[in-house]
Amino acid sequence: MVPSAAVSGVIAAAASTAAAAPKRDPDSAVALLHAAGDDQEALAEAIAEAAFLDTTPGDHRQKLRAARARLRQLNAAAAKADSADRSPHAKAEYTAEDFERLTGQYEKLNWRMVSKPGGATVKPDDFYRLYALHMQATQGDNATERPMWAERGGLDFEGRARWDAWSALRGTDPAKAQLRFVKLFHEFSPAALYKDTRGAVLAAGGQ
């Protein structure tokens, strides 16, 4: 039976579309998997692009499967690292009523020190975030001048870090700053401390 003109047209259009479609090259797909390395996002994209290799028996399919296994390993390692940085003191809800008690404790924590040029040292960013929230909650917007020089000479890295963090909160409602302080005190990463003693502080307050 001879196909009708309409059917012939459909067949011709399908053939034309197939010819125009880019040819998926297994070697190129594998090269993309290799080029992605340990970059999780790039590897995930390369795996998605190479999904057609599932129907390609042999070495190409094995390399796709190996890439998927590698991505699972990378994701698991990332999740473990996130877990290590997560504070064990985090809660579902917080109250600003804890502000007065905790605000007198954050400077007493055993903060790590970060070296700066000239032998100066500063604390981790979370310390200055807590300082800034404390100042915003108790004094409002920063109206002081940014410090420049330290008493012993050289740039005042400590003073400038405190000033910058506080100034960044300009316009923040003091009541909101109190609640944010309490939340951050509970949730900042233990990696910012040489030893995390927040548990004792929080236990003393019945938390």
Rank of each mutant, 00 (worst) to 15 (best):
T103A: 02
Q105D: 06
E93T: 11
D85E: 14
T103H: 06
A90Q: 01
L133I: 00
A92Q: 04
M113V: 11
R129D: 11
L130W: 01
Y106S: 01
T121V: 15
K108I: 10
H134R: 06
D141K: 03
D98K: 03
G118R: 07
A137D: 03
W111R: 10
K108R: 15
S87L: 11
W111V: 14
N142D: 15
V122M: 02
R101W: 10
G119T: 14
M135G: 03
N110H: 14
E93L: 09
Y128L: 00
T103M: 13
H134S: 05
Q136P: 02
M135Y: 07
Q139N: 13
A96K: 04
H134G: 00
A132P: 12
L109C: 04
V122D: 04
A92W: 01
L133Q: 03
Y131M: 02
D125V: 09
R101L: 13
M135N: 00
G140W: 03
K108V: 10
K91G: 01
L133D: 02
F127Q: 00
E97T: 05
Y94R: 05
G140C: 04
R86K: 15
N110T: 09
D125P: 03
K116H: 12
V114W: 09
D85Q: 11
T95N: 05
D126C: 13
G140V: 12
G119I: 13
A132W: 05
E97I: 03
M135D: 03
P124G: 14
A92N: 10
R86N: 14
P88E: 12
K91Q: 11
G118K: 06
D141P: 08
Q139H: 04
T103P: 00
K123M: 12
Y106D: 01
L130C: 11
D98Q: 14
F127W: 11
D98I: 01
E97K: 08
L109M: 08
A137G: 04
R112H: 09
Q105N: 06
R101Y: 03
L133S: 01
R101V: 07
G140T: 10
S115W: 08
S87A: 08
A137C: 05
G104W: 11
S87E: 09
R129H: 15
Y128I: 01
M113K: 12
H134Q: 05
P117F: 12
A137W: 02
F127T: 07
Q105M: 12
Y106N: 04
A96C: 01
Y128R: 03
D126N: 06
V114A: 13
A96F: 08
A137N: 03
T138W: 03
A137K: 01
G118Q: 09
D125F: 02
